[in-house]
Design a protein around this nucleic acid. Structure first.
Lengths: 340, 340
DNA sequence: GTATTCAACATTAACGTTAATGTTATCGTT
DNA sequence: AACGATAACATTAACGTTAATGTTGAATAC
């Protein structure tokens, strides 16, 4: 804008206004020890010269980069994409830059991403570790970098984290299916996220217990069981199961599509309730009943926790559990094949 | 790891090895003027002390941050999410950090994001401008920051860009529908992306022309036309249209879902071909025929172009047009209501 | 034997900003 | 009038790295 090469610096503004570099710096930060008059004059000149603060230099001196990192799974998974979008908005709203680093659910990549975040001197980091024993977590802890776990809880309460009330979610899902007349139920989990899976499972079982459904009518299939979720679901439906509970909406849709190809139709041959309710953010997939997880609040809370920890690393670790609710989209009405 | 506070610096390694800071710097960068012996010794000590390079300091001195920014629409749109994921991988592969900034398809936000990228001193920027007259582009051009347009072409050939062969895509879509026996066709556009829209339209028309379909049997609806795409599609189908061409897969799925709710079913009441083929990256939505856009190659090409420009800003602007192809997933078979 | 070259380091300065102190003029106090 | 307090600046140094130049000793050349 002004100089031949490169950008306008504090030096240039100082020369133009006849004060020192330091005074310009303070003026532009609205700090104390500046007369209102001088302050405004400097700001005006800075604006006219098209000054943009060099965050690199600022960071080096102040020790804060005003940048945080987000290490998540792949953005090709809408759950993470939505979460990253919300985190990004909240970060920018608070003046932070966000560096998104995808672990692609791979432990090696994950640790490389954490290393990259560390070398970039970010002020803090958010992470959805791809395993509860990610080596990346050890590296993070020993590095001293403030970080918060997103959608993941690790036994021992060592770290800050924000999670959803998985047990309540499971309960709501079970209750929803039973209230709609389903008596033979199947739960499908797709990932080894031990804590969440177990809690959702427990909540679901508790609902069945409370509503008087015998345990032998509840089935479960996870990544550890033999057949694929699809094969399992097909088998169940043939055996008279009418109510399915998917531990994640994306997989629910995938299942619905695959079942269609096999001749089983949602609403006709079976009912389904999902988990996440990411349909609230994307209009296109098939509407299903789902346990709504307040992702916006998760993003807000996570960054809030992170900022607190950046400000005071000595705080005791905090776990925030966000309540969930059930959103009904009529994918659970009684179906033809329903058992008495 | 070693010091009481903060990280290990070149200074610490220099002290530990008995050489100067500069020598350590060169050793860790495998530069010239270092004996193999000393180099290995320094690298060993650095590793043992747990050194991680401070990119902030490095950037300030060298003028390069090894970070690029990506200004895209919302990550809640799978198209952008997938693109960002691919860009992120390619960037990291080349040692670049990526700062993702979402414009949320809002001109004000977009320009704020570009300003943020500028103040963060990124080496270059990738952008899918939310309008062909985005003020952000003016800011970018006057800033001198190297940048590349993604999936967008602007008349005048002023900027580097990577786009898909929209005309060819439109042609392939039209050809596909006609070859499958459809004689009354409808095109649906959902955004004001003037150039792409027009080219896809032209290609589609050309296919109809080449295959002998009279113009009056081809319909078009865009954001500028009155009724919503859904209403338009409903009306067309009632009038005997059987082949739809959606200019984007996400909207295609949205349309399919909405049409289902209105009692019209894909494969039974109408056929459809989409554009993007993002199903290649996400397993869950309904399988549809689509014009495949090589996003991976787009990501690769864009970063390649950007690096060339960073290296030599005086290069003439380059436009890269990537060829597309049609992926058939049997969503275009002749339907019951097909006209003779 | 002196000049030349060069490998392998050291020295110096700088990137642009900000934290930590200094300095000075002005005003109020007793 | 002498002193302290304060507002409003200036000065200095530093953040950790790297570019640009110096320096030295040893090998080579003629």
């Amino acid at each position: 804008m002004t100089k031949d090469k490169g950008r306008v610096t504090l030096q240039d503004i100082a020369a133009a206004t006849g004060v020192t570099v330091n005074t310009v710096s303070r003026a532009l930060k609205n700090k104390e020890d500046i007369s209102r008059e001088t302050c405004e004059r400097i700001q005006k000149v800075a604006r006219e010269m098209g000054y943009v603060r060099n965050y690199i230099a600022s960071s080096l001196r102040s020790g804060r980069t005003k940048t945080i990192a987000m290490v998540s799974g792949s953005l090709m998974n809408p759950y993470y994409a939505i979460l990253c979008d919300l985190i990004q908005r909240e970060a920018v709203r608070l003046g932070y830059g966000l560096m998104i680093l995808c672990s692609q659910d791979d432990l090696d990549t994950e640790i490389r991403m954490v290393e990259m975040a560390l070398s970039r001197q970010v002020d803090g980091l958010l992470i959805t570790p791809c395993s509860f024993e990610s080596p990346a977590l050890g590296l993070l802890r020993s590095s001293g970098l403030p970080f918060v776990l997103l959608s993941r809880y690790l036994e021992g309460d060592l770290d800050d984290c924000v999670i959803f009330d998985d047990r309540q979610g499971g309960y709501l899902a079970g209750e929803h299916l039973i209230r709609h007349g389903h008596r033979d139920l199947g739960m499908l989990s797709f990932r080894h996220v031990v804590y969440s899976t177990r809690k959702r499972f427990e909540g679901f079982q508790q609902a069945c217990l409370d509503l008087g459904l015998p345990t032998e009518r509840i089935h479960y299939a996870g990544p550890e069981s033999g057949p694929s979720p699809l094969e399992q679901a097909v088998q169940w439906i043939r055996q008279g199961v009418t109510g399915l509970f998917s531990f994640c909406d994306v997989e629910a849709w995938s299942l619905i599509t695959q079942l269609e190809a096999r001749g089983f139709f949602l609403g006709k041959d079976y009912s389904l309730v999902g988990f996440d309710n990411i349909l609230g953010y994307m209009r296109f997939p098939k509407p299903i009943c789902s346990v709504d997880c307040p992702l916006q609040e998760e993003a807000f809370t996570a960054i809030d926790l992170l900022r607190r920890r950046i400000h005071d690393p000595s705080l005791p670790p905090q776990q925030r559990i966000l309540p969930v609710s059930l959103v009904c989209r009529n994918s659970c009405e009684s179906v033809n094949a329903m058992n008495p």
